[in-house]
């Protein structure tokens, strides 16, 4: 195949020439090349004809009307704004605007997200309510004891047990030779300050039931939200 005498004449230049988007020098170059090289003339001719054919393609007809309805815009038809309207416009009370914002947020999101959020809230409430009815507090009697009873157990066996536990808990450096009565008296106000639910027959319970319920609910909420997000991504 013989090489063109006008290697600088690219299709991009010819395309721009067709659209009258070339400089004067480029236009002269193209016209000279067309005169002298039949291959350039053919390239320009076929490209021009291609563009003509494309330009003859008709505008498509929409299969239906896309006129918007007030329902589609999800708000009432906004009347044309006039100065009278603008002056008579009263701002909504703050609580109403918050409510409206929440309503729009709730209605605007994905149904999957809404479902996940509602499910997680229901689960959270359930985990809060069920422990209150199903698992009565076990240690109320301990906390309701007078501080003096806790401070000085009457039974010698209990006193020994309290002393042992106190000795295990208290740092030895602070009190190398603990006086049982004094140690018990020291710890009594601290024990009495603890909420009832934290006491189980004199032992510290790591988490109260309601706190565990809250944690479970939050974990469920996170899990369900993640599930909702994942499903909405899949369905998108």
């Amino acid at each position: 195949m013989p090489t063109s005498r006008f290697p600088e004449i690219s299709d991009e230049l010819l395309s721009a020439y067709i659209d009258h988007a070339v400089s004067e020098a480029e236009r002269r170059l193209v016209e000279e090349a067309v005169q002298q090289d039949v291959r350039v003339a053919w390239r320009l001719g076929t490209l021009t004809e291609t563009v003509q054919l494309l330009r003859s393609l008709p505008l498509l007809t929409a299969p239906r009307s896309f006129v918007l309805t007030p329902e589609q815009t999800s708000q009432p038809v906004r009347p044309a704004a006039t100065t009278e309207d603008a002056s008579s416009h009263q701002p909504l009370p703050r609580w109403k605007s918050w409510l409206e914002g929440w309503r729009r947020f709730w209605q605007g999101g994905s149904p999957l997200w809404r479902g996940a959020l509602a499910g997680s809230m229901a689960l959270w409430l359930l985990t809060l309510v069920v422990p209150a009815f199903g698992f009565p507090a076990r240690s109320l009697h301990v906390a309701s004891l007078p501080a003096g009873e806790l401070a000085a157990p009457s039974d010698p066996a209990q006193r020994t047990l309290a002393a042992e536990s106190e000795a295990m808990l208290a740092p030895q450096a602070l009190d190398p030779a603990p006086d049982l009565g004094r140690a018990a008296a020291k710890s009594a106000p601290l024990v009495a300050e603890l909420p009832p639910a934290l006491l189980l027959d004199g032992e510290a319970q790591p988490f109260p039931g309601w706190l565990a319920g809250v944690q479970g609910g939050l974990a469920g909420a996170v899990l369900l939200s993640a599930l909702g997000w994942w499903r909405s991504r899949r369905s998108a």
């Binding site: 009307s65 896309f66 038809v77």
Partner: peptide
């Protein structure tokens, strides 16, 4: 200014172009 009827006139004018 928020006139939906006026907006729909634009829709009718440009819907074939947009669809095309």
């Amino acid at each position: 200014a928020g006139d939906l009827a006026a907006f729909n006139q634009l829709v009718l004018l440009y819907q074939n172009l947009a669809y095309s």
